[in-house]
Nucleic acid binder design. Structure first.
Lengths: 343, 343
DNA sequence: AATAGTTATGCAAATGTTTTCATTAATTTT
DNA sequence: AAAATTAATGAAAACATTTGCATAACTATT
């Protein structure tokens, strides 16, 4: 018995129900336009034939595709996990399906992914941050699909954005360390070349540190990707030095976690021997021992609002979609920072 | 100036290039069939008009949609993050785009998501584990889309699967604790109702423990979701007891991390006062202080192979797709387990 | 009871591609 | 130079839907 090529399209359902294809279509999309009795027949026919609508056919007709694209640098670490989860939940609650793509912090790859998502005719598109290639910006403008930049807020952004002011975050973190009396500061950030979030945080913090005439010895400033293992490794070297800083500002909580482990491994007490502050307040940061002092970025709320904005933009057929929502970051003082000791 | 409704379809490109739509289509899909000169004209026309192919139109024609669906319980925690990342990388390397959906450990929700992905005519579909509703299995059979269950290996699975034998994992973890002399054992698992992975691990381990006549005091067996915070909380109660177990088997590394933090908070030494073993070997588990002893599940390799299988299955037009690949789990001895002390 | 208005349904066109078949042009063989 | 191949292109059908328009069957109004 050869598996029959399941020829279950809308017309076979229509035949089975004894109505026209148009009526079946209406029963599915505008149930109020078809008589209850007919609807019932159709429902049965659908159930019986195992019919599944073809979204592609709707899409081609100009209808919404029912998909929203999300392009992130990575999902491998905790950084975007909560965001993706919240975004996905909010988006699917509104009947959309998520098309996910990740580019590994490479903006040319990102451009390719954006194109691919546009080929699939996503109804809306979300990217992380405001650093994108000129090609990406151009194609988004041309296709005018509702687009949203998540994570970084900028009042002058070329596209809609919802997020935090990352410079502000840098300020908050730096001020906290300065306030505690630290003047010997180390920083651990990822490469800031194609990452506006990290760049803003870092340069803002540096400015503050300089204003406070802190010692920012070149050798204490290190660069490592967002990875616990690599951050720990890098910090082992840094913290084993005779002349080490009294405080460490980490590009995010993942790095901070690595830093803490490095300190513990070396038998240093956090925060007595070294203060460590993270950025993000990821899941688990509060439970760390010692609990991580960090600057909270409300990932869930950002993800949820982002999804809400985009879903709304899809319905409105209005011309240009532009919203900017700013969330406030917040210092969460826990147990990894303390007043600087005289050294 | 009203933004013209970008009428950039294949025929407008064709007109611009002075050829027929058919030729443009060929230039895109079978470049070797069209003369270099013509191809060049077409390329220019495409560039100039900002044309982006409409995947929906191809799909409707019977061509592959170029999407692969992945349904996971959650992306919020580290559990599936590496898997999703590896799967996504492998899938997009082969030209597909990932449609992601998450159901929050609810199998009815999962059914809905599977249907939605099928509406989008995914070329292939991956699910986590082998616990799925009858409806889900039925619809997958009816539509015969290549389907793969990831994470759990079962030689008798109704669909293709790649993963580890979770019972085996339970055995490995239990044997390790027994071998170290532990006979007072606590376990922390999530609800096993709709989660075959956790169920297999737990029941296999229990069997081993019973065979070794270990003390499995009811009060030491706790249930908590995969969450660092909740696991830590639950363990604080457990470990503060006068009569606590000497070893803790955790449903996965996320829970184990919570358990470690709880122990540290209570001033207990791990592993001297309490041995803790996790499952999974997630990113960061090796860097924990003390480093986590765990049973490694090769998430990256599983994700990559899963994607490879599915991509291959899409090309092959063969009737039934059925592969089963088993990966071996491996005990990774680190610093959180030690020989039981007489109590 | 005749007219107007409403409701439910069907017909057919339209959506943006791909692909089969046919046609023309270019190349090779005799 | 004619015949036979081969290569490049175009015309049109097909894919699974949705929707505007037309029609038929009711219901409400006078």
């Amino acid at each position: 018995m050869k598996k029959q090529k399941h020829k279950t399209d809308i017309v076979s359902v229509a035949n089975l129900a004894g109505v026209s294809a148009a009526t079946v279509s209406r029963a599915l999309n505008h149930p109020d336009l078809v008589q209850p009795a007919t609807r019932k027949k159709i429902d049965q026919a659908i159930r019986k034939s195992g019919y599944i609508r073809n979204r592609a056919a709707q899409t081609i007709h100009g209808r919404r595709s029912g998909t929203i694209g999300l392009v992130v640098p990575t999902v491998a670490y905790a950084i975007f996990a909560e965001l993706v989860q919240a975004f996905n939940d909010a988006v699917s609650e509104r009947g959309f399906t998520l098309l996910l793509a990740s580019h590994g912090y490479d903006l040319d790859t990102e451009y390719g992914l954006v194109r691919k998502l546009l080929e699939h005719r996503v109804d809306a598109l979300a990217l992380i941050g405001l650093d994108h290639s000129a090609d990406t910006y151009r194609v988004l403008r041309e296709q005018n699909v509702p687009t949203l930049a998540i994570w970084n807020f900028d009042a002058a952004s070329p596209v809609s954005c919802v997020g935090v002011n990352n410079a502000e975050i840098g300020n908050i973190a730096a001020d906290h360390l300065i306030m505690l009396g630290h003047r010997r500061i180390g920083t651990i950030f990822p490469s800031t070349g194609e990452n506006d979030r990290a760049r803003s945080r870092k340069s803002a913090a540096f400015e503050r540190f300089r204003a406070a005439q802190a010692d920012l010895d070149e050798i204490w400033q290190i660069q490592t990707p967002y990875s616990i293992a690599q951050a720990k490794d890098a910090c082992l070297d840094l913290l084993a030095r005779q002349d080490r800083p009294t405080a460490l500002l980490c590009g995010n909580d993942v790095i901070a976690q690595g830093a803490i482990y490095a300190a513990l491994k070396l038998g240093l007490s956090v925060p007595k021997d070294i203060s460590i502050i993270g950025i993000g307040d990821f899941a688990g940061s509060a439970e760390l021992e010692p609990a991580l002092t960090t600057v909270r970025i409300p990932a869930r709320r950002i993800g949820a609002i982002a999804a809400e904005h985009l879903a709304a933009a899809v319905d409105r057929t209005e011309e240009d979609f532009l919203v900017r929502t700013r969330f406030e970051a917040e210092l969460i003082m826990r147990a990894t920072t303390a007043v600087a000791r005289a050294k």
